[in-house]
């Protein structure tokens, strides 16, 4: 009974759900602020993503005549909920370890594809030609970056498992514990190819500028999101805020989960997230141009895939 209560608490309030949402909105606000500063603008207030959400909640939702209404309105909900669940599965090193009964790294992997699928479903259900273009682009991107991600995750799991004397270990708790005793994978030359592949993966998953091809507003008018308005669009914003927390948190858990125990661990985790968001997202976002879909597809099938295959081979041999 208490266990299921904790499970619901973890998914709805902390560290998934509300806490992750607040964190994600704060990170988005910081990102927009720093991006503005890097472009010599003043930028919006820090709470701007929150204002946007409140505004969207007050607007009217319009459903296109040719859209399939249940799918059209269900897609953002599924995307946001999946990310809230995923946030409960990512450990905060030294502070929070997810209950192994919820699921392990593989579940996070599956949940991470749900937002992309939700966007694809949304784009195709809206019945708009731009949505359809966004759908096809999102699918191409997903096919391109999911492969390297799976291989990276397999490499990390294999390294942990072999280090512990077993075979693969897909438990995030074990991966974090292994790194905290044996040194982070960030400093382990064997894991550097995997790190490089992950560095190419996360901008694509977060949809930031070199890879924001499916939602490119100047080309396909925000693609799948084109027909959304009001609370449904707000749910997509919630989804992307949560996704930032999940993907960056996953990166931290996979590669550098150094943290002291207790509440200080939470603070260190937050500091790492902020640093990653500012350096890994804002700076990248303002200093790159957008790739074309064929360029991005070719890029992902060349470098990140090569690095991830290499990392798997290196880990298996080491």
């Amino acid at each position: 009974m208490t266990e299921s209560f904790y499970a619901i608490f973890a998914m709805l309030v902390f560290p998934g759900g509300l806490f992750a949402l607040a964190l994600g909105l704060a990170l988005k606000g910081l990102d927009r602020r720093l991006a503005a500063r890097l472009q010599r603008r003043v930028g919006p207030p820090l709470a701007q993503p929150l204002y946007d959400l409140v505004k969207l909640a007050k607007k009217r939702t319009m459903v296109p005549n040719i859209a399939s209404e249940p799918v059209f309105l269900g897609a953002p909900l599924i995307g946001a909920v999946s990310m809230a669940l995923a946030a409960a599965l990512v450990p905060i090193p030294g502070f929070y370890t997810p209950n192994p009964a919820f699921g392990d790294l593989l579940v996070v992997l599956y949940l991470l594809t749900v937002p992309a699928v939700a966007l694809m479903v949304a784009g195709s259900a809206s019945g708009s030609p731009f949505g359809a273009i966004g759908f096809s682009r999102e699918m191409a991107m997903m096919l391109a970056y999911e492969g390297p991600l799976v291989l990276v995750v397999a490499a990390v799991a294999l390294r942990t498992g072999l280090g512990q004397g077993g075979w693969v270990s897909f438990s995030l708790t074990e991966i974090v514990a292994y790194q905290r005793t044996h040194g982070a994978f960030l400093l382990d030359p064997v894991m550097w190819p995997a790190l490089l592949a992950f560095l190419a993966f996360y901008p694509a998953n977060l949809g930031i500028i070199p890879f924001d091809i499916p939602e490119a507003e100047t080309e396909v008018l925000e693609g799948p999101l084109l027909e959304y308005s009001g609370p449904a669009l707000g749910l997509f914003k919630v989804m992307s805020a949560l996704k930032a927390v999940v993907v960056l948190g996953l990166g931290i858990a996979l590669f550098f989960p150094y943290a002291p125990d207790g509440a200080a661990g939470l603070l260190v985790h937050l500091a790492k997230l902020v640093l990653l968001m500012l350096i890994g997202v804002s700076v990248v976002r303002v200093s790159c141009g957008r790739m074309r879909i064929d360029q991005a597809f070719r890029f992902f099938l060349k470098w990140p895939l090569a690095f991830s295959v290499l990392s798997l081979a290196v880990v298996a041999l080491a």
Binding site: A36, P44, E222, Y228
Partner: peptide
Amino acid sequence: IPRYDVERLGCQYCGSPRHAD
């Protein structure tokens, strides 16, 4: 252009009429 930054007011130019206020 940075000189007249409307994002200060929270504004954002959006590509879709569905998002507009």
